[in-house]
Design a protein around this nucleic acid. Structure first.
Lengths: 258, 258
DNA sequence: GCAAAAGTGTTCTCTATACACCCATGG
DNA sequence: CCATGGGTGTATAGAGAACACTTTTGC
């Protein structure tokens, strides 16, 4: 708590914030890193503010590092949310709770408290990270920082559910012309892993055999040994990404006759 | 000039601005609405600020209306620019001129002058408008407000060239899954008009006969009478958009097997 | 008749999609 | 041997690209 003190507001750009939708993949599930606030049962996206002398993208990277311990990660801006009532969009009943919570927990910092009451325009960034390498760290307002499956998202504060939905749509469109997976999957993975990942982003079942062929044709994979799963069926191959070919494909895009 | 007075800053969100890339189509050329500043030869995108009690999207519509006279127009956010040095990105020599210009022309408004000196994070919006219906109106800082072909863009202040380039890339990608034209072209147009429009956004020549077939297959057009152009060749058909089918296609997207 | 642009046709390749088939694995 | 999931094969329909052919127009 003492991390924050009142004078911090002198170093922050007022009225602008950043919220990060941090994706990870684990147990064949697509997950998002969420914070649970102290004392009350409210969830939020990891977020933060921009220093007066800091590029906005840099701030997003800093925030991501503060919550996940990760550096040098795929991080992209996707939308800026500037509705004047965005803090009350969902759950009309919650804002009062939040307000009193904010006021109580930081009452020893009157300037900061006041500062937090202003209207914020927030820019959404999304990150794709290797869940195994991440070390979730709660912020000063939060109890816990944990991975939650996108299929089981709780109700979030403010417009954060809307931010996540916008983000998912954005990524679903990106999948049409960009490969995905290198930052989300472990070094070795099966085609089924990759398919589950795509299905989670697209919110749609895909056909197994065609998916495999389509992916392999991208020519960005290295086929490794087979993996005995212990199940009563044929063992799938493990794959890893051919990083240089992958990055090349990211640069030139998929299927751009344009 | 008296439109602005010092107290206006009390009603504006500090540190946030909006810049609009307003597209029109005329003489078979894709054009952008630009402002030329007073006394010095500097060009800029139409922009403005957000009222403390105004949704950001609403502000973008207001700014668009102030510069073009147009209401109810296709207007979309595409990116937010938050580099700390974004006002000096290009033309290292210009900022000083700009600064003194700003200070001089508004010296009677010291608070406003001071306010304008702060760092701004700007959100880019793009609009597609019918150039025939637009009535360009200069703002208080500008002499003229005019349409400039995207092929002949001047050097713009700050990072405005970068903003335009980002916008063009954004739209080029959108063209893969959204139709375009209804807000840019006049009521009646030829396939060649539409093709020129696409070529301008994609910065690439397209094959005439295939383009026509691909477009017509979208089934969003109404074929009208032929148009005698006076040229020594076959007269092209005129087309108009079937608005309801067009809007339906915008909603469901092109080629989304996903 | 001729040049030029519009409209339509043809051919080839590539992709998407659906589904069939055989293979490996553990019980 | 059987159920299950993995890998590959195949057949069909449609899209994209290149280019040929025919039509219309004004000179």
């Amino acid at each position: 708590m003492s991390l924050y003190n009142d004078s911090i507001v002198d170093y922050l750009i007022p009225g602008n914030s950043i919220d990060c939708v941090i994706f990870g993949y684990e147990d064949q599930l697509l997950k998002i890193l969420l914070l649970k606030w102290k004392t009350i049962d409210l969830w939020a996206l990891p977020g933060g503010f921009i220093l007066k002398n800091e590029d906005m993208d840099k701030a997003a990277h800093r925030i991501l590092k503060d919550r996940s311990g990760l550096d040098n990660v795929f991080l992209n801006q996707f939308h800026t949310f500037g509705n004047k009532n965005r803090r009350e969009l969902l759950n009309q009943n919650i804002p009062k709770e939040v307000e009193s919570f904010e006021k109580n927990t930081i009452k020893e910092h009157p300037r900061l408290a006041k500062w937090l009451e202003q209207r914020f325009i927030t820019t959404g960034y999304f990150a794709l990270v290797d869940i195994k390498k991440a070390k979730p760290i709660p912020d000063v307002l939060s109890d816990t920082c944990e991975w939650v499956s996108v299929n089981e998202l709780p109700v979030l504060i403010y417009d954060h559910n809307h931010i996540i939905n916008t983000c998912l749509k954005h990524i679903a469109i990106q999948l049409n012309y960009l490969p995905i997976g290198i930052s989300l999957l472990p070094n070795k993975f099966t085609m089924q892993d990759l398919q589950r990942l795509y299905e989670a982003f697209l919110n749609k079942k895909l056909e197994r055999s065609n998916f495999q062929r389509k992916m392999l044709k991208l020519d960005i994979f290295i086929r490794l040994e087979k993996q005995l799963t212990g199940a009563a069926n044929k063992a799938p191959y493990l794959y890893s990404f051919n990083k240089s070919k992958y990055l090349e494909l990211v640069k030139k895009g998929i299927g751009f006759s344009y």
